[in-house]
Design a protein around this nucleic acid. Structure first.
Length: 608
RNA sequence: GGUUGCAUAGCUCAAUUGGAUAGAGCAUCUGACUACGAAUCAGAAGGUUUAAGGUUCGACUCCUUAUGCGACCA
């Protein structure tokens, strides 16, 4: 690594200096200079002794010896010349290095000095980032798919913040288009002046109710037309309700006051509903964009492209971009009647975001069904010569399936977000009551605890899977509290909280000097190594835009701590320095669990 | 039809980006509470990584072909 560059977390620093030592060893023993890049160092698998492992196969050619011989020679040299290496063993082409306990203690001392929540500067990482997520349509309430999107977007934004980036969370609300008109038409027909208050229904659910009503009556109309002998595709267009909705869309674009008024009213209800849901699931936004306000800007971009000659007009007046040279197709940008399509407004929004924030990375959290669309968007912006085109990044995540298969609104299998949250909170409540360990908490604190645990379970469940992969949502598994789950990690935190309370009460020396410790337990060594890797994990999660990396890490930390907890006495330890060290190690673990879960949008309980 | 993604234990997911005997959780079986919190811990069992070839010291990972499932573009 070149000097003055990337920040390395304590473990990476240690690895890096071990590599240097290995280079020196190769020079001393074999008289050969080895490039650092050919040294692959990895954490030792736990069935072998040691903490770091050098793979010696790649060195056989350069050193002219067999892999075992190389391992022996380098290991022996390090053991005698490098004080941080206390021992070694060679298994086939793998040299396992044992690190002296003094080094682990020094590492822990370093960790003690800096809070886990401090930013992790990362070289080459974007500085100003816009993360667009959630981005709902305003004709329906949020569902399970939106939850994966929301949790991902929120978490990625937090992870990027933790690398020191300035992050803006943006929500692009799709507030216009045929789908809202459908809800509006149905409301005009069947609503009878109903409001969220009069119906006792959240506004987003009310709008959804009318959308469903529209679809229902619309289908009936189609059926009837078909019975009269009209072909299906024609019936779909001729059905009176659809014709009305189309008319309303045009009236909206023309700015007809009555239509706009109803539109504002219904969208207002929906926003109130969304806000309640967002608050309930703990996500937030710094900036809202509305497609009703960006699509005109998009039309300007289309004009710009025509002027620059990178777009072209067909005979019917529609505007297209030819992306065949980029391996894509021709793409419609503006209809013959001058109305915009999805991508029109996307062009406008991208421009607006850039004007507002001058980002060097603009992340779109959108399901992978839109992969093609996002490629087209980026390629089109490139054609326009936009400086920010390369900064666009599609965080493409897989769809969520149910045990019964795909979610389908037509078959009524869509899992409603509000209902789901209610269910997981109820499950957490039932489990907590059964355990009966929450004496002394007020009713209000209890409600907060149930919510924190239920959402912890749900968020962890949805975030622990690699975002890119399609995943299966099993309702029973999502409320589980044992094993690889959010509450498992939360439990470890609560346990440590108890230790800290007791330690404070009994006056354990928090500032004790641990350098006097002679040796560490295996579980202590392992914990220190893991905790010292936190910053590296955050950097990797930011690079990969993957909360799953953090989820896996924090689970491993909790597991190691639980093992440590059962195997080693903490407050019952007689030696005051050992005791103080173990309390401090526990406290650091809690801090890192809290920080890690925080990156996932999950809170921690002091007791549970 | 064209483009593209995925396939790992009974189920849900990992695998440090080409490294050791492919690891966890759930489910199944066994053991540990007169313990600093058992929402925990220790252990057993569970695999031809969809199939067949290829590349090399070494392949779940890269290449080719086939099969299955999905998405997008018409």
């Amino acid at each position: 690594m070149t000097p003055g560059s990337p920040y390395l977390c304590p473990v990476q620093q240690l690895e890096s200096s071990l590599k240097t030592a290995l280079q020196t060893a190769a020079q001393a023993v074999f008289g050969v200079e080895i490039p650092a890049a050919s040294l692959t160092l990895q954490p030792t698998r736990k069935e072998f002794a040691g903490s770091f492992t050098l793979v010696t196969f790649p060195l056989t050619k350069a050193l002219g010896k067999g892999p075992e011989q190389i391992g022996q020679a380098l290991g022996e040299w390090l053991k005698t010349h490098e004080p941080r290496v206390s021992g070694y063993n060679v298994v086939k082409g793998f040299l396992n290095l044992e690190i002296a306990d003094a080094e682990w203690l020094a590492l822990f001392e370093q960790l003690r000095q800096q809070p886990a929540a401090a930013p992790v500067p990362t070289e080459g990482a974007p500085r100003r980032v816009v993360v667009e997520y959630s981005s709902p349509n305003t004709n329906k309430p949020l569902h399970l798919g939106h939850l994966r999107n929301n949790f991902l977007g929120y978490s990625v934004a937090e992870i990027l913040k933790a690398t020191g980036a300035t992050v803006t969370k943006a929500n692009l609300v799709n507030d216009r288009g045929i789908h809202i008109c459908k809800s509006m038409i149905a409301y005009q027909h069947f609503g009878q002046g109903e409001t969220p208050e009069s119906a006792g229904i959240k506004g987003d659910h009310l709008a959804g109710k009318y959308y469903v009503l529209f679809e229902k009556h619309y289908r009936e109309e189609i059926k009837q037309l078909e019975a009269e002998g009209v072909a299906t595709d024609i019936a779909k267009k001729q059905a009176p309700l659809m014709a009305e909705a189309q008319q309303m869309l045009q009236a909206w674009e023309a700015g007809e006051p009555a239509v706009k008024a109803l539109w504002s009213q219904m969208n207002g209800w929906v926003y109130e509903g969304f806000d309640a849901t967002y608050k309930n699931i703990g996500v937030d936004f710094d900036q809202y964009y509305y497609e009703s306000e960006t699509y005109l800007l998009g039309k300007e971009r289309v004009e710009e492209g025509l002027g620059k000659g990178v777009f072209f007009k067909k005979e019917n007046g529609s505007v297209w971009v030819d992306l065949q040279a980029e391996g894509l197709d021709e793409k419609l940008l503006l209809r013959a009647d001058g109305t915009s399509v999805y991508i029109t407004q996307d062009l406008g929004t991208a421009e607006l975001k850039y004007q507002d924030f001058g980002y060097d990375s603009s992340i779109y959290v959108i399901a992978d069904e839109q992969n093609y669309h996002m490629q087209v968007l980026q390629a089109t912006l490139k054609k326009l010569g936009k400086p920010y085109a390369d900064a666009i990044h599609h965080l493409s995540y897989g769809m969520v399936d149910l045990p019964s298969g795909k979610m389908k609104s037509r078959e009524g299998t869509v899992v409603d977000a509000d209902e789901l949250v209610r269910d997981v909170v109820a499950a957490a409540k039932a489990a907590t009551l059964e355990k009966g360990k929450t004496e002394g908490l007020s009713d209000e604190e209890l409600e907060e605890l149930y919510h924190l645990l239920g959402l912890g379970a749900l968020k962890y469940y949805l975030l622990k899977v690699d975002p890119k992969k399609r995943m299966l949502f099993n309702p029973e598994e999502s409320v589980r509290l044992e094993g690889d789950t959010g509450p498992f990690v939360q439990y470890s935190y609560a346990r440590i909280s108890k230790i800290r309370r007791d330690a404070e009460e009994s006056g354990v020396d928090a500032a004790a000097d641990f350098s006097k410790l002679v040796s560490l337990e295996v579980t202590e060594r392992e914990l220190v190594q893991q905790l010292a890797g936190y910053a590296g994990v955050v950097a990797e999660a930011a690079r990969a835009l993957s909360p799953a990396v953090v989820a896996q890490y924090v689970y491993e930390v909790a597991r190691s701590y639980n093992r440590f907890y059962t195997e080693v006495p903490i407050l019952k330890e007689g030696d005051p320095i050992k005791k103080a060290f173990r309390v401090a190690l526990s406290a650091k673990t809690a801090e890192i669990i809290k920080a890690s879960l925080g990156l996932l949008g999950i809170n921690v309980p002091e007791r549970m």
